[in-house]
């Protein structure tokens, strides 16, 4: 008798889980495909490309959730009311049909589900995947913070100008404009390196999680600060080279670095540097007392 009763419950639970996953999939598969298409084809907007780290970040988040599945299922089934609120907000955002709101509904609904199905412990277990999804969710935030990049643009222009003067080039810097041999180079908001900064920090977070250093707050902050510094310095070097190429009429080299595979090479080198850095942190701090939890 007991056995007969148990099987339906197991099937029912299994069916419900499957139905939830399928419903989520049906709701968000077209959206995720649209995001991916936009990242690969660069066909949506510059703001969308700011989040292209989602190309690797979203599968990484899915992979983490997969590795956490037994931990997740062992959690008691408790519901936190905040989960219902988040699900409702997420549902309204999705229903609005407006791009930013629908995009944002994805992490909101996921976080809401964690809280609604497994309470606070559920949210804690899925903390990292949720962070990786939220930070890869495209919004117009880059558009809104672009005006704030102006001091950074000015800084980059003056440092690049200063470096070029050391190489005996006749450079004048006016705000964000560099004048070299009658040519003007503008350090535009998109040249301020914000995208690369976002990508470095995101990849930095992934590396922190992957190596387990994330549980050490001091090391994590130190690493992310170094990642940000590397990104800013690398961008100044890039802008200096671009000004040099443009100012001395080497248009081929300019286009190679500005909009061809030279730019990709530059990004790859920079991210490679992050891997080297985290390896160094790992190896050189191994004899210090390690944090117990992973």
């Amino acid at each position: 008798m007991h056995i007969e009763r148990k099987i339906p419950i197991a099937i029912e639970r299994y069916l419900l889980n499957a139905a939830l996953v399928v419903a989520l999939g049906l709701l968000y598969a077209p959206l995720l495909m649209y995001w991916y298409d936009g990242w690969l084809e660069k066909s949506i907007s510059i703001e969308h490309e700011y989040f292209s780290h989602g190309l690797i970040g979203l599968p990484f988040a899915a992979y983490i959730t997969w590795t956490l599945r037994s931990q997740w299922s062992q959690l008691p089934n408790i519901s936190h009311p905040a989960g219902a609120i988040l699900l409702l907000i997420g549902g309204l955002c999705y229903g609005s049909g407006l791009s930013d709101l629908v995009n944002l509904s994805f992490p909101i609904v996921l976080a809401g589900l964690c809280l609604w199905l497994k309470g606070i412990p559920g949210l804690r277990v899925q903390k990292w995947p949720l962070i990786f999804v939220a930070l890869a969710t495209p919004t117009h935030l880059p558009y809104l913070i672009e005006p704030l990049a102006f001091p950074l643009q000015k800084f980059i222009a003056s440092v690049a100008g200063f470096i070029l003067v050391q190489f005996n080039l006749n450079v004048t810097v006016e705000q964000v404009y560099l004048f070299v041999n009658g040519q003007i180079v503008e350090v535009a908001p998109h040249c301020a390196g914000l995208k690369m900064l976002f990508t470095s920090l995101y990849v930095g977070l992934m590396l922190l999680y992957w190596t387990g250093i994330a549980s050490d707050r001091t090391k994590s902050i130190l690493f992310l600060l170094s990642a940000a510094t590397i990104s800013v310095v690398a961008n100044i070097i890039r802008n200096t080279l671009l000004t040099l190429f443009h100012g001395t009429g080497q248009d081929g080299l300019f286009h190679w670095l500005h909009d061809s595979w030279g730019g990709d090479l530059y990004s790859a080198l920079m991210l490679g540097l992050l891997v080297v850095l985290i390896n160094w942190i790992q190896n050189n701090t191994a004899n210090e007392p390690q944090a117990q939890t992973h």
Binding site: L16, L24, A84, L113
Partner: peptide, 15 residues
Amino acid sequence: QWAKITALGLMLLLL
């Protein structure tokens, strides 16, 4: 099951 069913209900509505 109650929590799952309500969540599923919301998603079906959205669908």
